[in-house]
Write a protein that binds this DNA or RNA. Structure first.
Lengths: 138, 138
DNA sequence: CATAAAACCTATAAAAAAGATAGACTGTTT
DNA sequence: AAACAGTCTATCTTTTTTATAGGTTTTATG
């Protein structure tokens, strides 16, 4: 299950994408629109900014905005940034690998094998689907 | 990411399946073999028993054993039992559904749509692959 | 230049979940 | 009767998640 943090990030990004023509968007506007605690959202947007996904502007008329078009932001990138691994086991994670402590030999572990397939199936979607694909359907 | 509880459960089930011919297996044997805290494992095996996956026998010569052949135990069943939802969002979970609090209308939410596809892709594997498929390859 | 607006930053707190442990109880075998 | 091994319930510790607080910096504008 994705954390609230990641879920909020998706909703915030959706709002930013759908209002990209209106210039910088206030944190407070997103918070209200999506029912997210403003202070919590602040931290999340900051992380997205530090990761190079969002830009910001201070002072009057300031706010946050996307630095790239929505179709260039894969969903996997957001999940990995805020939640970490996408794989179900540390020993099959591409970006957050950790050795399995309970099995003698990963090369021979059948769990490793199946969970690798689950990871691949998920990534096939999460790395090709982008912010553009989750905008409100109308 | 699967919890330790679920990971331990898989390793324990693998051990039980691979030693099914030896009669009931001691908790302590599994714990030692797989480097799992014996008391923690105790709780996990009990849950598996209460869910009808394992049988047990008390007293000397007792222990745990599988109630069904490994190929009739889908991995999804174990995960749902010990970890809950397999889906990435509550609003696309088949077994643990919860309404999305941050979006106006799920029917029109693009996130809902994509995450549903991720769920389907994962389930396609986790519901068809069974305990038999994760036994040690030799 | 003063003021207000709005993001930035760091720290901390509160709540929930995960992971682990303790000890007494029940049933079984010999 | 004694030893064995699972059962049950409660508690504890640690970690992670979620949320809040409050001051700092930057920018626009009158």
């Amino acid at each position: 299950m994705l954390s609230k943090k990641t879920q909020y990030a998706f909703h915030a990004l959706i709002h930013l994408a759908e209002n990209a023509d209106k210039g910088p968007i206030l944190i407070s506007e997103i918070a209200q629109e999506k029912s997210i605690s403003i202070k919590f959202l602040e931290n999340i947007l900051l992380e997205l900014k530090n990761a190079g996904i969002l830009g910001s502007k201070k002072g009057k008329g300031g706010g946050y905005y996307l630095l790239k078009p929505p179709k260039e932001i894969p969903l996997a990138k957001i999940i990995r940034l805020l939640d970490g691994a996408i794989a179900l086991l540390p020993c099959v994670s591409l970006n957050y690998y950790e050795r399995c402590e309970n099995c003698r030999d990963e090369a021979v572990c059948g769990l490793n094998d199946v969970m690798g397939k689950v990871r691949d199936a998920s990534l096939k979607i999460l790395e090709t689907k982008t912010l553009k694909d989750i905008l409100t359907r109308d």
